[in-house]
């Protein structure tokens, strides 16, 4: 995933989407993803931290230098936020998806076939 051409896994994409709205800790990401996908995607601890680990290595996310007051409630909690690279990568991926959707729209593929 260090190359920009690689397609993101659903876990990585959703973690990026969650962090795009602000910094969150691990379990907070899980809850956000569940809410956004209406429960269709539920990240387990291994899957989530595997994605977090790899994204941090690639420099897409980072731990904020100053922790917010919230973090004091549980010192084990680490918060994450998007870096510039992460935000670019998310934009790139969303553009790729959006290209696909425009293509499909142009060919009338999104319409219900029954309706024609």
């Amino acid at each position: 995933m260090s190359t920009s051409r690689e397609i993101l896994t659903p876990a990585v994409l959703h973690v990026l989407l969650s962090l795009a709205e602000g910094e969150r800790h691990g379990y907070g990401i899980k809850l956000d993803v569940e809410e956004r996908t209406a429960g269709a995607l539920s990240l387990g601890p291994g899957t989530l931290y595997e994605a977090v680990h790899r994204m941090e290595k690639s420099g897409w996310i980072e731990e904020p230098a100053r922790r917010g007051a919230r973090a004091k409630s549980d010192p084990r909690r680490k918060y994450y936020r998007l870096t510039k690279e992460g935000r670019d990568r998310l934009k790139q991926e969303l553009e790729r998806l959006s290209d696909i959707v425009s293509y499909a729209r142009a060919r009338d593929l999104l319409r219900d076939p029954e309706a024609t």
């Binding site: 691990g26 379990y27 899980k30 601890p45 291994g46 931290y49 680990h53 909690r77």
Partner: peptide
Amino acid sequence: EFRESRSEEILGFIEED
């Protein structure tokens, strides 16, 4: 490497979950 940096977080996650 992963274990040393993440296991505490993961255990916290599981507890909360």
